[in-house]
Design a protein around this nucleic acid. Structure first.
Length: 572
RNA sequence: GCGCCUGUAGCUCAGUCGGAUAGAGCAACUGCCUUCUAAGCAGUGGGCCAGGGGUUCGAAUCCCUUCAGGCGCGCCA
């Protein structure tokens, strides 16, 4: 429908172009007015042309409207049905041109929604292009916390959006299993193990002190008894480290599954360092550095190996191999992102905690050095989550072991509510998450508001089937739809037909929260309608029509909730 | 010191590419259940869009600056 307006205006401008002496047709910008009474769509193109044409905007608008009126019959002939498309095309305010569609057009589009269902709601923006989204990627050294949960919820919703928009999406979790951190984990578990068996070794300075360390140690005892008692960390540390982080990783995967999020692929950092069996072959880290060197972006200085990231806008060059011969963390990141390119992704999206924002320029540099156009790499930063309980901040220190895990929040608040709250905020604004508020307000919680609308409709259909007046599977008939004449009904239909635009906006801007807000608005107009009008009545035709309306709302709610990763319950 | 993010109603937050009278939820107050789910609806009040300057037909939105909060700025991961 938006396209109809754009085409109409563009067509008019095309005709006016010569008269105005313009070289090119100006871009047409169409929006939905804030106030529904103003019209269904509006364009500000007349105001934008004041400077070039040196005429008052309203005068320009008049000329455009005249041209539109002259061209409408053409549209009618062009297969838009046997009726005029517009109820009115008017000028308002400083020079807005407002468009009101004829009701028949809404009916036609509405019928399309009912017959095509979910496929009518999606636009193919991706055309099968491959997108890789890396998110969460938490260190496997402790349980997931609430911040990871936010990243998981946003990443998951974004993937759902992109998939619905026709992209071939891969969800990936990058495992930081190579660095010092997992070693600290191993040391911590080793120390607890010894202590639990009475060998009072000192707990490592950089160790993890959480309860979970103790429970992993307990498992070691259960499985291996005192086999490693009094052995040094040098003797058995690799074993402890290995088993411990794998256990952590398994827990993380389980937490994510319980949060409703499943990854397609888990990439180990350590594997990037593995040299293949056959001699002469190099690890991915080595060959990725070679590839940069081949392009002339590598140099040595002060005994270290550097990447010339300043060539691509970074404020300083970055070390890849330290003076002591060890690789920096950045080295494996180079290998990893090169690997993403080699796997043939068209677009690469990384979702990071906002505290990593300083890494964006250097990774952009890497991908650009390997030839990926700037706009094909996108980092979405997830701002910090301040966890509260009764308005009081909850301490979140991994080292001290004092923190609330994602698992605890899911168990206490619920996965749906938790996800929904994360998705009602823009990713780049900090957010307060008060566990008690999320829980206690459960009756007033926005997620229930939306789910309730869905459940209510399900209930109406149960009722309808009981009385034999209709069901969810009923065929839609055009003559039924025209019984929908109430203002609220037209209003709901319009709102439903706006979904594809909201969805497209969310996909292009990569902002899932737009869908969350839309669903709340749609639920709002439905609840209001429900209270004012009865769906099932003695009027059989009207009942059928209203059931169709309910069905359509249900389809859109289901689609939106599915994208957010939130359930759509039939009963509440 | 430099860089990034944020500052909108009492609280938590939306606000599309610069557009019309700046919105929602919570909290407060007033009403609505013998009829499809009251986890709902109808209504009332609530604003120097942090402050100041600029750009223009037009600014919460863009630019500059000040203030406030958060996060970064290693041959750490």
């Amino acid at each position: 429908m938006k396209q109809i307006v754009i085409d109409t205006v563009r067509n008019a401008l095309e005709n006016l172009k010569e008269k105005w002496g313009l070289a090119a047709t100006p871009d047409v910008d169409v929006e939905v007015p804030k106030n529904e009474a103003m019209g269904d769509f509006a364009t500000t193109v007349a105001m934008g042309l004041t400077k070039i044409l040196k005429k008052p905007p309203r005068k320009i608008a008049e000329e455009i409207v005249e041209a539109i009126n002259a061209s409408i019959p053409l549209l009618e002939k062009g297969g838009e049905g046997g009726f005029d498309i517009f109820e009115s095309v008017t000028i308002a305010g400083p020079g807005f041109i407002n468009f009101k569609f004829r009701r028949e057009l809404f009916y036609r589009e509405f019928e399309k929604l009912l017959t095509e269902r979910h496929s009518a709601l999606r636009t193919d923006l991706g055309k099968g292009r491959r997108v890789q989204v890396e998110f969460v990627s938490a260190n496997p050294t402790g349980p997931l916390h609430i911040g990871h949960g936010r990243g998981a919820a946003v990443g998951n919703a974004l993937c759902n959006i992109l998939k619905a928009a026709g992209f071939d999406v891969e969800r990936e979790f990058y495992i930081n299993d190579a660095g010092l951190q997992v070693k600290h984990l191993g040391r911590s578990v080793y120390a607890r193990y010894q202590q639990l068996l009475g060998n009072n070794v000192p707990f490592p300075e950089d160790g993890y002190k959480g309860e979970y360390i103790k429970s992993i140690s307990d498992e070691f005892i259960k499985r291996a008894g005192d086999k490693y008692l009094n052995k040094t960390f040098e003797e058995c540390g690799a074993f402890f480290t290995n088993v411990a982080y794998k256990k952590m990783l398994a827990d993380i995967a389980q937490d994510l599954r319980d949060f409703g999020i499943v990854f397609d692929r888990w990439q180990s950092e350590k594997e990037l360092y593995v040299k293949p069996e056959d001699k002469g072959r190099k690890s991915e880290v080595e060959s990725s550095i070679d590839a940069l060197a081949d392009r002339g972006y590598i140099y040595e200085k002060d005994g270290a190996v550097w990447f010339k990231s300043t060539l691509f806008g970074d404020d300083k060059d970055r070390v890849i191999v330290k003076r002591d011969g060890e690789y920096t963390y950045f080295a494996s990141d180079i290998a990893y992102h090169k690997d993403k390119l080699d796997r043939g992704f068209d677009t690469i999206i990384d979702i990071w905690g906002a505290d990593h924002h300083g890494y964006i320029p250097r990774l952009k540099s890497v991908l650009e050095a390997f030839g990926l156009p700037r706009e094909k790499f996108r980092v979405i930063l997830i701002q910090m989550v301040a966890l509260l309980r009764h308005g009081e901040p909850v301490q979140m220190s991994k080292r001290s072991g004092e923190f609330v895990t994602l698992r605890e929040v899911i168990d206490e608040v619920g996965a749906d509510t938790t996800k929904f709250i994360f998705l009602t905020r823009r990713a780049d604004s900090q957010l307060e998450f008060d566990i008690e508020v999320a829980k206690e307000q459960s009756a007033e919680n926005p997620v229930f508001y939306v789910q309730y609308a869905f459940a209510r409709i399900s209930s109406i259909f149960r009722q309808a089937e009981e009385r034999g007046v209709g069901s969810q599977k009923s065929e839609v008939r055009s003559q039924d739809i025209s019984a929908l004449k109430e203002d609220e009904e037209i209003s709901i239909i319009k709102r439903l037909l706006q979904y594809p635009m909201v969805f497209e906006g969310a996909a292009l801007s990569m902002e899932p929260h737009r869908i969350t807000y839309y669903l709340q608005e749609l639920s709002g107009v439905f609840h209001s309608y429900y209270n004012k009008h009865r769906v099932i009545s003695d009027d059989a035709e009207l009942t059928k029509a209203r059931l169709s309306l309910c069905r359509a709302v249900q389809i859109v709610l289901e689609e939106g909730l599915k994208i957010l990763g939130v359930s759509a319950p039939e009963r509440m």
